[in-house]
């Protein structure tokens, strides 16, 4: 019985890892191709959630989840054209500072537009409830979302660009694609994924102005454990973080949140570049 409960936590952790993946991949993508650690990434996640809530009242949940990442990706164009573009070759500390500042501006802008109080939205009735497979219980909504993320990354050309962009940015560039419009598309993809994460999370978490800052910590832990510049590193790390947290909560609930930082600490002790990270000259 104990083993069954533990396995249930492991499987739940894998599902949760799928969520973290969506946010962490965009972060890793922008870093791999542009060399920018985007501290404003969480702001796009929050914007995705807010736009989704706003649209849900008019268009329903499904359409809103589909549209909000595109709406936020359009903002990504402005973000890349007017801000990021100036920092690709600059000292990394400058892009850290500017994106950190932008994250604060975005949080305050959300506060001014939607107010400090959270806004609410719900999962449609048909997506609610649990699915029991054998001895395991899953949230129906989370399973559907996970399936959506998998299809997006594995079966679409969008997913291929993400995978190639993170894994082989130099090769993509060497194919003769002009770099600047290409970078605009990469940033759109990255922030669009964060916004999609926000839209998916909106019905099951508090949608409030500081939600972007909350998710950034986990996203960074995932990217650092996985290693910058590695698609599979990020995938493995996201799943590992979800599973380790689940197991920790099973045995020692008080250590649940600390467990992912301990994991990061241990991974960095053994592999300072993360599980599958590559050597990145700019930072060494």
């Amino acid at each position: 019985m104990q083993l069954e409960f533990l396995l249930e936590q492991v499987v739940n952790g894998l599902v949760l890892g799928g969520y973290y993946l969506l946010i962490a991949l965009g972060l890793s993508l922008i870093f791999s191709v542009g060399g920018i650690v985007n501290l404003a990434h969480g702001a796009f996640y929050a914007l995705g959630a807010y736009v989704c809530v706003e649209l849900t009242t008019r268009l329903g949940f499904g359409a809103s989840v589909a549209i909000s990442p595109f709406a936020v990706a359009l903002l990504g164009i402005l973000f890349e054209r007017f801000i990021l573009r100036r920092f690709y070759t600059a000292d990394p500390i400058l892009s850290l500072l500017v994106t950190f500042g932008l994250a604060m501006v975005a949080e305050q802008a959300i506060r001014m537009i939607w107010g400090a109080a959270p806004v609410s939205t719900e999962i449609p009735q048909s997506f609610r409830g649990s699915v029991i497979v054998g001895d395991f219980l899953f949230s129906r909504y989370r399973l559907l979302v996970l399936l959506g993320i998998w299809l997006l990354l594995q079966k679409t050309s969008f997913g291929r660009v993400v995978r190639a962009g993170i894994q082989r940015p130099d090769m993509v560039a060497a194919l003769g694609i002009r770099l600047q419009p290409y970078m605009t598309a990469i940033v759109m993809l990255g922030v669009g994924m964060a916004a999609l994460g926000g839209a998916f999370f909106a019905p099951i978490t508090t949608v409030h102005p500081a939600m972007g800052a909350e998710i950034m910590t986990v996203a960074f832990v995932v990217v650092v454990i996985g290693g910058l510049g590695s698609f599979w590193g990020v995938v493995i790390a996201a799943l590992l973080v979800g599973v380790v947290r689940g197991i920790a909560i099973h045995f020692e609930p008080a250590a649940g949140e600390a467990s992912i930082y301990i994991l990061m600490f241990l991974v960095l002790l053994v592999r300072p570049r993360g599980l599958l990270g590559e050597r990145i000259e700019k930072f060494e």
């Binding site: 952790g13 989370r142 978490t205 008080a254």
Partner: peptide, 20 residues
């Protein structure tokens, strides 16, 4: 009873324990 740290945002592991 589960003691929950104040920065927890995902409750799914705790909900599994409730079900158990």
């Amino acid at each position: 009873d589960e003691l929950i740290a104040t920065d927890v945002t995902d409750f799914s592991p705790y909900l599994l324990k409730v079900r158990q």
